[in-house]
Design a protein around this nucleic acid. Structure first.
Lengths: 173, 173
DNA sequence: GATATTCGGTATAGTGCATAACAATTATCA
DNA sequence: TGATAATTGTTATGCACTATACCGAATATC
């Protein structure tokens, strides 16, 4: 029971709620009250996540990368020589669903599957030169446009605290 | 560049990553490095959101309510006399998708659609007695099991700060 | 060497989310 | 008033993401 502003709800900009001027002195269909909803962490969490992903897509639109694709490229860069299962597991992606995702990245020449010589069942994943170049550009866009905007909104200290709490939840909850 | 523990990554419990004991002194396929991923707010945001929703479902399982359904019941309780469009908009649900959702709640006798006398196009939504009872029980479960656990993990102050930052992002980002 | 396990992959189903379109009703305004 | 536009709930539909079962090939286990 602390969250700063229960007032000024203004429908929380939930959609294009076509708000028209009151015209005459009608009873007025004012904004709905969120009530306990604004105390539900999951609710704010999902709303914030949608906004952040939306902004991510905008910022990195010139490279046509989704957050999931970006995370795959990042992982491949940091962890060369890994196979599909390892990468997918680390990202919480199920192996069957990872296939189409890799097909997409590979068809765009951002990464390649190479049959492992040790274990000929597995595919070693590696970034292509183009993949590394795209990743570099993406990192720059994310840092200068996306994360920078979050930093501006929250401030560096709060942003770090937020990140830490989210990681704690993801790890220990 | 602050997030507490870059070490102890342990694959972040991404799935049932069957980790077996090293057997002999193999080179060991240690946990993957998340790298810049742990600095990506969207990544932690989504991971945390999934965990929180998962726990919500567990805590409220005896009532068979999803987070979305719970939020609808909460809104209906706080805002009697509203129609489908108003409720859906406030929750960021598109009207077409709200129909099946209401069908589900109505078929379980948790709420009802009543043709408005002022505007015979719209359906006024209202909780049934059973809906109010279920909502009350759900609130109790959420408070004592779900939110209480988050409070225990983060502490009341941090939890409030987290909620505030998430609301800020959802509102102003 | 027989059995079980793992890997990438296919097929499939469920869910969330988005758009177009429609009948009924209401609002707008010439 | 009457023609047109807008709104409400709804259906249909498609796309993306998620989850499970299953398969052949390759490897591990014993």
């Amino acid at each position: 029971m602390t969250v700063s502003k229960p007032a000024a709800v203004d429908a929380a900009k939930p959609s294009r709620a076509a708000r028209k001027e009151p015209a005459e002195g009608a009873v007025d269909d004012a904004a709905l009250q969120l009530g306990e909803l604004s105390e539900l962490l999951g609710y704010s969490l999902k709303r914030a996540q949608l906004r952040v992903f939306e902004d991510f897509l905008r910022c990195v639109a010139p490279l046509q990368l989704t957050p999931a694709q970006f995370s795959v490229l990042l992982l491949l860069d940091r962890n060369p020589g890994r196979n599909q299962t390892e990468i997918a597991n680390t990202l919480g992606i199920l192996r069957p669903n990872f296939v189409a995702m890799l097909d997409g990245l590979e068809s765009r020449d951002l990464c390649t599957r190479v049959r492992s010589t040790n274990d000929r069942r597995s595919h070693i994943l590696m970034l292509t030169d183009k993949g590394r170049a795209v990743l570099a550009r993406a990192k720059k866009l994310v840092a200068t446009k996306h994360e920078a905007r979050l930093n501006e909104l929250l401030g560096p200290a709060s942003r770090a605290a937020l990140l830490d709490m989210l990681a704690t939840i993801a790890r220990e909850f």
